[in-house]
Design a protein around this nucleic acid. Structure first.
Lengths: 338, 338
DNA sequence: GCCCACGGCGTTACCGGTAACCCAGCGCGC
DNA sequence: GCGCGCTGGGTTACCGGTAACGCCGTGGGC
C-alpha cells in the first residue's frame, strides 16, 4: 500500500503571508511564547492547519543550536532482551524529546570495525551516545573514538554490584547459585556465555567464586554465544558420570538448547539434573520443563540508561544510576536434591 | 562509564579561518566537488582533522532541502521477528544514507492513539514512512493521517500471494496445510493469531479454505496474541476426543505454549497429535519436540520494504516488490498419520 | 599580441527556523 | 499634557551548511 509523492511543504513564511502577519508571529504562535492577540493567534492557527504546516526539524535544531538525537550503539537488536533495553531507552528518550539513531554493530567483532561505526555516529553530531553492548570490544572501541558528546555505557539490564575495590559482579548468578545451594546442589556444572561479553564473564566469575566457597571445583563444561543452538552443542559435554547434580546455563536461550540436548540423551530434568538459566524470557515458563531463571527487567534498565545519558547531556553532573532488583523465578527445572 | 561534556563543535567557518581559505572551499573539499589545488585540499583536510570537524546534519538537510530520515511505525520492536524486519530496513536505509526514526505503537490499540503517533511522525518532516505493523488498526489510522511523504505498508515478512480479484493470502499457511495433508492429516485443529493482524487473518483464511477443500469442517479452537502464554491457554481447548490428528498454530511462540499444554495433559507429540507453527524462530529447533514450521526471511523482508520506500521517495514510480519465498522446515513435531 | 576558456578560488544568497532588538500605539498616573 | 510601561507585533541577524555566480590569473589558439 502506497501513497503518491506530494509537493513541497509549507514554511512559516508561507503561513505568515497567508495570515497577513510576519513570520515571527507565526513562530511565536508555534512556540506559545510572547503576547499575541487571540484573534491573530486564531488566524495563524487556521492557516497553519489549512496549509498543513510541518516544522522543519533541521532548521529548528540549527537555530536552537541543540541536538535532538541520541546515538545508540546496539547489537543484535532483534534479540529479545537487548531490544527490550532499546524499547526502554526509546520510551524515555521520546518523552524527553530525543530521537534515537540506532547503529548496529557486531559487539564481538573487530575493534577497528566497531570504531568505524562509532566514528560515523560521532560524525553525525548527535547529542549523546548510549552503548548497550557490554563487550570488551565495544569498550575498547569507545576508548579509540574521541567523542565530543557524553557517552553512557549501559550494563544492558544485567544488574551488577560493584563495591569500591571489587570488580562488578552479577547479582543474577548469585541468586541462581544460592537457589541451587538451598536445594542441596553443590556440584553445579556451568555453560558460559561468549567470552567478550561483560555479563558473561561477570556471571562466570560469580559461579566460580561460589563453587570455590562451597569447596567444590568449578565445572565449566562449555561456552556458547547466547543462542539455543550453542547451548545445545555445549550441553553435549555434560557427563552425568562426573557427578554434577545441577546445570547452570548463562542465559535462557542457551538453556533451551541444553534442555533439548539432555532430553535427547535421556537425562531427566529435574530428576537427574536441575537446570537454571538467566533472563526470564517470556518463553521460559513454557519450556519442557518450565525453566527456573532470574527475572531481569531489561526495559527498566533501558529507562535508567536513557535517563542517565539525558541528564549527562543536559546537566553535566554524572551520578551513577541504581538498577532495579533482579528476582529469582523458581520453576520445575530445578528440584531439591535427592 | 561516562565521558565529560565537551565544548561546542567546529564549523566549516572555523576550519576555513584556520586554513586561510573561504568556507566555500572547505565545503568543496568536504563534498569532493569542484577543482581544488592538492596543496589547498591537504591544508583544509589537516585543519578538518585537527579541529575535529563534524558536519551539522540539520544544516546540511536544510541547505539541501532534502530529508534524510525515514519514519518507521513499529510495534513490539523487541519481539524477534518484527525486530528482524527492522534490522533489514535499517541495513538498506543506512546504505542509502537514511536514518531511521522509530515510533513504537500498539498496533491493536485505539485508532485515535495510533493516528496521534503517526501525526507526530508526520509533524517531524521525515522523507517517508514505513509501517511494519500489518494490523487493521494501523491501516485505518494511516487513512486518517494526511501524509505529505510517501508511505509504504509492509507485510512484515509474511509472504502473501495476491491475485487480481483475490485477497492477499498467506503462503506460509498453505505450506503447512500441504505438509500436513501429505502426512495424511485431514482433521487439523487451528489456533489463530490476534484478529486485528493481517497475517493472522490471512493464515486463518487459508486454513479454513484448505479444510473446506478437504471436505472437513474447520476447527478453530482458540485465538492468541502471538505469545507463548496465549498459546498455552488456547491449547487447553484442544480435545483429542474431537478427532483432530494435527494442530496448526499460527506462530511458533504460541506453538511453544501449546506444546507445553499438551505435554502437561499427557498428549504426545507427534504420536497423538502433530503440531506445526509458522515463523521458524531460532529456538523452534530446540522445542520438545523440535517444531515443524515455515521459515520466513524477515530480514530480507525488511530489505525489500526499505528499498521499495526509498525508490518511492527518490523516484515516485511505485512498483510492488517481490518477497522472498518461504520454505517449510519439517521437524519432529509432525509425523505421518497412523 | 589579443581573446577566451578554464582552473581555483571568494562572495553572496538562501534553506527554515529562533532570538534579540526595535517600534507604534494605547492607557495610565501625576 | 507628558512621560512611562505594557501589549502586540515587525525587523534583522544568525545557526551551519549548499549553490549560483563572479572574479582573477594563466596558458593556448590564431
Amino acid at each position: 500500500m502506497t501513497r503518491p509523492h506530494p509537493d513541497r511543504p509549507a514554511t512559516i513564511y508561507d503561513v505568515a503571508v497567508a495570515a497577513g502577519v510576519s513570520h515571527q508571529t507565526v513562530s511565536r504562535v508555534l512556540r506559545g511564547v510572547g503576547s499575541i492577540r487571540p484573534e491573530t493567534r486564531e488566524r495563524v492557527q487556521a492557516e497553519l492547519a489549512r496549509l498543513k504546516y510541518r516544522p522543519n526539524v533541521g532548521a529548528r535544531e540549527l537555530a536552537r543550536a541543540r541536538q535532538r538525537r541520541i546515538g545508540v550503539v546496539g547489537y543484535e537488536t532483534f534479540e529479545s532482551s537487548t531490544s527490550k533495553v532499546l524499547r526502554g531507552v526509546d520510551e524515555v528518550a521520546e518523552r524527553a524529546g530525543y530521537t534515537l539513531d540506532i547503529v548496529n554493530v557486531d559487539p564481538t567483532g573487530d575493534v577497528a570495525e566497531i570504531s568505524a561505526a562509532l566514528e560515523s555516529l560521532n560524525g553525525t553530531d548527535v547529542a549523546g551516545v548510549l552503548a548497550t553492548s557490554p563487550t570488551r570490544n565495544v569498550r575498547e572501541a569507545l576508548e579509540h573514538v574521541e567523542f565530543r558528546m557524553p557517552v553512557f555505557f549501559d550494563v544492558a539490564g544485567d544488574q551488577v554490584a560493584a563495591h569500591d575495590d571489587e570488580p562488578a559482579r552479577s547479582i543474577a548468578a548469585g541468586l541462581v547459585m544460592s537457589h541451587l545451594a538451598d536445594l542441596g546442589h553443590e556440584r553445579v556444572a556451568f555453560i558460559a556465555g561468549p567470552e567478550h561479553w561483560d555479563s558473561a564473564t561477570n556471571r562466570e566469575a560469580v559461579y566460580r567464586e561460589r563453587m570455590l566457597a562451597l569447596g567444590r571445583e568449578p565445572m565449566v563444561i562449555g561456552r556458547g554465544d547466547w543462542s539455543a543452538a550453542s547451548g545445545y552443542r555445549a550441553a553435549q559435554a555434560f557427563d552425568p558420570a562426573e557427578g554434577a547434580t545441577a546445570l547452570f546455563v548463562a542465559n535462557d536461550r542457551m538453556a533451551l538448547g541444553a534442555l533439548r540436548a539432555l532430553a535427547e540423551r535421556g537425562i531427566r530434568v529435574p530428576e537427574d539434573v536441575s537446570v537454571a538459566g538467566v533472563d526470564d524470557i517470556p518463553e521460559a515458563a513454557y519450556f519442557s520443563p518450565p525453566l527456573t531463571t532470574v527475572h531481569i527487567d531489561f526495559t527498566e534498565g533501558g529507562h535508567i540508561a536513557a535517563r542517565s545519558l539525558i541528564s549527562l547531556i543536559e546537566t553535566p553532573d554524572a551520578s551513577l544510576p541504581e538498577y532495579p532488583a533482579s528476582v529469582l523465578i523458581a520453576r520445575d527445572s530445578t528440584a531439591r536434591l535427592g
